[in-house]
Design a protein around this nucleic acid. Structure first.
Length: 309
DNA sequence: CACATTTGACCAGA
DNA sequence: TCTGGTCAAATGTG
């Protein structure tokens, strides 16, 4: 599919037709899905097509009607892999406090977590991520086949490390896990090499290294420059990236693969004060995994003009 | 004995 | 009122 842009209104009209056509196909696929609910394999295939079509439609809408699309998709949940079906990942309580580890006055009250988080989908074999975790809870999640496990860093008490993660088997493939990380590790890991043994750990390491020295050169971001996570900056350039082949955006959620992650980080490095962008341990798994980021609108704007000037 | 996991209860927010 | 995140006592493991 290709949209030839001649002028703004005409291009928008063409895009509108494309979106309508795509949504029509989505509707038809949903009808088929409804008719074949008793056939799991067929359902999975149809669901994958629906996700892919929806992805394209959103991309068209966002590139052609940026303001309207931003408003409409602002609360869209994160996408699943194109090859899979969506899982019920919760975006329940996004904490917008900075990286505080202040004592919690109320022991039963939810603690503040770091404001950035990333999500990776990993195979069972790659679930180990080089960090030491201690499980502190498990919950059955409404609509999900598998319970969600809650983990915090083993060094939480000894070193005050506030990193946590949630691990949940995906509905459509129990050999895959959705892993949502909250906060950064501030603990000293026993072995740094362990962190780069697994592909998504390499991405975590990359982003955390970047976060440590990141200073975004915008007026609005100076207040939290020292601790501003790269994911926020990634999200803040979404208007450009969604119209380029670099990464796909879903409102306040982002998706890219390992190769795209490198491009995003490189683009960030060009407009930030990061002296050296670390080189992650790249392998085939790293490149093939999808990484999801959350957009935090409380961060200052770093627009496309700034990034690609 | 120290540390990790399990699991029911509690709590905040939607 | 319901749901998801966390706590903490009980239990398991080496």
């Amino acid at each position: 599919m290709e949209v030839v842009v001649t002028d703004g209104s005409r291009a928008q009209a063409q895009a509108q037709q494309l979106v309508v056509a795509e949504l029509g196909r989505v509707k038809e696929l949903l009808r088929q899905l409804e008719l074949h609910l008793h056939e799991p394999d067929l359902c999975r295939g149809l669901a994958a097509q629906i996700v892919a079509l929806t992805d394209r439609s959103i991309g068209i809408a966002r590139s052609s009607f940026p303001s309207a699309a931003a408003a409409h998709f602002a609360d869209t949940p994160p996408p699943a892999l194109v090859s899979g079906t969506p899982s019920p990942l919760s975006d329940a309580s996004v904490d917008h406090h900075p990286f505080t580890t202040t004592p919690n006055p109320n022991p039963k009250k939810r603690k503040a977590t770091a404001r950035w988080r990333s999500q990776v989908r990993v195979s069972a074999a790659a679930e180990e991520d080089g960090h030491s975790w201690r499980k502190y809870g498990q919950k059955d999640i409404l609509g999900a086949k598998h319970p969600r496990g809650y983990y915090r860093c083993t060094h939480r008490n000894t070193q005050g490390c506030a990193a946590t993660k949630q691990v949940q088997r995906t509905d459509h493939d129990s050999s895959l896990f959705d892993v949502v990380y909250h906060g950064h590790h501030t603990c000293n890991r026993p072995s740094s090499s362990a962190a780069i043994k697994k592909p998504h750990a390499a991405a975590q390491s990359l982003l955390q290294s970047l976060a440590a020295g990141l200073t975004v050169d915008t007026e609005n971001a100076t207040d939290c420059a020292m601790t501003q996570p790269p994911v926020a900056a990634v999200a803040s350039v979404s208007p450009s990236l969604t119209t380029s082949p670099v990464a796909s955006g879903y409102g306040d959620w982002w998706c890219c693969d390992g190769g795209e992650l490198q491009e995003v980080v490189s683009a960030l490095a060009a407009v930030t004060a990061v002296a050296d962008v670390p080189e992650p341990a790249i392998d085939a798994d790293f490149m093939n995994l999808n990484y999801y980021f959350e957009f935090d609108p409380s961060f200052g704007a770093l627009d496309s003009a700034t990034l690609f000037q």
